[in-house]
């Protein structure tokens, strides 16, 4: 049995909120650099150049990468042999409260109807997974609203299969055009139930851009669909170019024999997420 204090959880979450909003992950930085080199259009090159300059400026000044510092989304993987001393959910929310407050991050959480801001960016959206072992892993994502708004869940007919997935994803990206801050990253969840597919799609966005799906069939599908997305030519900021998306990641799960749940979670180029193990 491993004991972890609520304070340690709060501190870890606080630090991730601040750090993820300030430092772009290396895989995203590299993709943006490569994007600039890979475009012919001066406009597309200029967008990538500005994004790289923005990344350097944020790291150097402590300004957040984007004014939309997101709703806080956390995936908690809790080992069964871990005993958290205190209230785990409250410790996470306190970390978000401190991170967004002390980090001078924007508080974007509000009541859906009154639109009244909760004032501290809580409550966070927290997903829990219980696993064997003595580790507590917490992954944090700052999820901006513009790209999230372009995301959809669709219950396909099973007969539609992969062709149906491609058509739905491509149509979604085409309709979104410049809205979600392309070049985007596309998280796709397939299977499970209505809500599980959406969770898988978000989890897919936690993967590194340069990882390769361990299942060869899915790796091939990711490559094929990313290629098709980029043939749309929407390009950086919708101004045209070779990079409409920097990455496309698929996670799957078995589903009901009657169903083919499909979730498409769109992420902007400012893919801000971190993970810590306590």
């Amino acid at each position: 049995m491993k004991r972890i204090s609520a304070q340690a959880v709060t501190k870890a979450v606080r630090d991730m909120c601040i750090s993820a909003n300030r430092y772009q992950p290396e895989d995203v930085k590299a993709a943006i650099k490569a994007g600039e080199a890979g475009e012919d259009s001066p406009t597309a090159k200029e967008v990538f150049r500005q994004l790289s300059e923005n990344i350097d400026l944020a790291a150097g000044t402590g300004l957040p990468l984007c004014q939309d510092t997101g709703l806080a989304v956390l995936f908690v993987t809790l080992g069964q042999e871990v005993y958290v001393e205190g209230n785990l959910s409250e410790a996470i929310n306190e970390g978000v409260r401190q991170g967004y407050g002390e980090g001078l991050l924007r508080k974007s959480a509000c009541d859906p109807f009154s639109r009244k801001n909760t004032g501290d960016n809580t409550p966070a959206v927290i997903h829990y997974d219980i696993v064997p072992g003595e580790a507590l892993r917490i992954a944090f994502m700052a999820k901006g609203g513009g790209a999230e708004n372009m995301s959809r869940v669709m219950m396909l007919a099973p007969a539609e299969g992969w062709e149906g997935v491609k058509k739905f994803v491509l149509t979604r990206v085409a309709e979104s055009r410049s809205n979600p801050c392309p070049p985007i990253i596309i998280g796709i969840g397939i299977g499970g139930t209505f809500e599980h597919s959406a969770k898988l799609a978000k989890l897919a966005l936690m993967r590194k851009l340069d990882d390769v799906n361990p299942e060869p069939d899915l790796a091939a599908k990711e490559e094929e669909l990313l290629g098709l997305v980029n043939r749309l030519g929407i390009g950086p900021m919708g101004l045209g170019g070779r990079h409409t998306a920097l990455g496309l990641k698929i996670l799957t799960s078995p589903c009901h024999i009657a169903s083919f749940p499909l979730a498409v979670n769109i992420q902007c180029h400012s893919s801000r997420h971190e993970e810590v193990e306590l």
Partner: peptide, 13 residues
């Protein structure tokens, strides 16, 4: 007008 989305630190200067 369009400004570059996701370049909030840069634009703030």
């Amino acid at each position: 007008f369009g400004a570059t989305g996701g370049a909030g630190a840069l634009l703030s200067t």
